[in-house]
Nucleic acid binder design. Structure first.
Lengths: 339, 339
DNA sequence: TGCGGTCGTGTTATCGATAACAATGACATG
DNA sequence: CATGTCATTGTTATCGATAACACGACCGCA
């Protein structure tokens, strides 16, 4: 506290400690060359005065904000929450903070969000997926910071990418269904334009089955993402009405799969006898549902962790730009009783 | 882009547009008094140059960071995710961004997180719960910004509070159990020290039942929060082993309730015939489980929205300090088939 | 004793935008 | 025509910390 009642600045702490501002500045950093005695003294005085270090002023001079920006579709989705957690954990040890934005699965909101995030001058930016508006892509290309696209395997990444092919994930489930001997298939998912990754999974699933001569795959398309249990339940009703002969259905998310399975059961079907159900995402609910639901684990936490580790490396050693541009995170098929 | 390859600053845009830096600054703000023609011209030039406004430099001069800090236990919990979403939605329209931190339910990490958040000079800070370390409380008291404690009804709030009494939420469920005619009760939850709100719910639940002469209430205590499906399942096994005569159990969260119910079913019990199960949180899974799970909806999104609205009001009109300090968000009992 | 090196500390200029104030021109009004 | 008002634009100092440089004290070693 200063005499005039304004919050204390570093200079006020310096005055109180009888040293120069520069010495206080050094005391607040780990690398600062100050004698231990002085540092303790200064920090104690600062604490007593209620001094709070001003990161904003610091970043103006150092040009280091300590921010890693990340843009995800939604934070209510456990998968993206896991990715953010993995990222945060990986970068926190290196004095980096995560600046989070979400788009509610709207591409134009992504552009706006990226614009907003970049104004904070993050040291790196992580986005979800490889599909962006042209303007958004330009923003990322011009940003002069590491750009990481996650949850996807973009054919032309802006910078780096950490993720997997959602189409292949869809194929994995198709292979599993084929191996189990099912014949008539369906896919429950959301509207095409909003969730490009969900659409890619559907494409892979359908392509593989039709290539095996097991088409057509019936598509049940619900509203905008996120597609959750209530949509799954609605999709289940629609499916039984339109294509009651279906034997196995993949859902775009585990939430939807759970909702669909519950609805099938309510309507008297036995799972997997009358209908096999699978999801995507390895939500916790899938493991504890009865029957437990077959799913694909995208290893969301690992995606975040890997992206975080990559960022730390790029920031510490900018020369490492030569390394490979894509980190493949293999999704895992988790077979359970529902198929 | 400047001639030397460094990112352009406002002065570079000004030079390119043949105006002063100040005019460019004004063009970038909604209130700036610049002729429309000039503004369009300037913005177009800025865009073409790839200029990105530097929010950090701006905030140093204006002393407005545009940040609202929020500290939650976890972002994987759908309840807190909803609160953050409600908050973000409420403040976004007023040019405020949410700076998010989470503590993994560790009180000492909360202190550290608050310290870190405050260094960014947020314009307001929102924390979860009313229990903090002494140092954390001091930090909040000295911060000279609006402080809002959520998800609780602190007896001595630091500043404002938005939430409900978790003890009363526990009592609500006890009342419901009593009305349904159950006699032998249990509560499945986490370790005491880490989740004060969960503990409060348990306390209310137990107190009410014992006051009605329906004790003792058996407590099944698992590990550290978050307490999810796997803990619920484990708790269910423990409960059947130690107190098989139990008729109705409340779980600290819906995740745990779902896991417990599944496990009871796996072990051959019928719900609610052999065992009634209730949760807390109104997770989507509860509505689609079979049977659907009775729960308490804390209206998490409303909590966030209300806190956001309050902040906007306090920042716009600092004189409104006189208004009431607590906004009560009533939790709703949602009775379903599991009880 | 003299020299170079290290350690701890101080001085000055600076990061990029903007508040506060000043100045200009256009137009209205008496 | 003089004066006032308004809208628009420019000039200067500044927010709070720190990089870069300078400097003195002290050390070891020849």
């Amino acid at each position: 506290m200063t005499t005039d009642g304004s919050p204390p600045r570093m200079a006020d702490v310096a005055r109180a400690a009888g040293v120069s501002t520069m010495t206080v500045s050094r005391a607040f950093r780990s690398d600062g060359s100050v004698s231990d005695k002085r540092r303790d003294e200064i920090l104690k005085i600062a604490e007593a005065m209620g001094y709070v270090f001003d990161r904003g002023a610091s970043e103006m001079r150092t040009k280091k904000t300590g921010f890693v920006a990340v843009c995800v579709p939604s934070i209510n989705n456990p998968n993206f929450a896991d990715t953010v957690r993995g990222l945060t954990d990986a970068v926190a040890a290196h004095d980096l903070e995560v600046l989070l934005g979400y788009t509610n699965y709207q591409v134009d909101r992504e552009e706006q969000m990226i614009r907003q995030l970049l104004r904070r001058k993050p040291e790196a930016i992580i986005v979800t997926g490889g599909a962006h508006t042209l303007a958004a892509r330009t923003l990322l290309e011009r940003a002069r910071i590491p750009v990481i696209e996650t949850w996807d395997e973009p054919s032309e990444p802006v910078g780096y990418s950490v993720g997997f092919s959602n189409a292949i994930a869809g194929e994995m489930m198709a292979d599993h269904f084929i191996a189990r001997g099912y014949r008539r298939f369906a896919f429950i998912g959301g509207k095409t334009e909003n969730d490009t990754r969900g659409v890619a999974r559907r494409r892979g699933f359908v392509r593989k089955l039709e290539a095996a001569g097991l088409g057509p795959v019936h598509l049940v398309t619900l509203g905008k993402p996120p597609i959750e249990a209530r949509h799954g339940a609605e999709g289940a009703r629609m499916l039984l009405e339109m294509h009651p002969q279906t034997e196995a259905v993949m859902c775009v998310s585990d939430g939807a799969a759970f909702g669909a399975m519950s609805e099938f059961q309510r309507l008297g079907l036995s799972i997997p006898g009358d209908m096999a159900v699978a999801g995507f995402g390895a939500f916790e609910v899938s493991a504890y549902a009865i029957p437990a639901i077959t799913t694909i684990d995208p290893n969301a936490h690992v995606i975040g962790q890997t992206a975080g580790t990559l960022i730390v490396q790029l920031l510490r050693d900018p020369a490492s730009h030569a390394m490979k541009r894509h980190a493949a995170i293999e999704p895992t098929l988790v077979v359970r009783q529902s198929t």
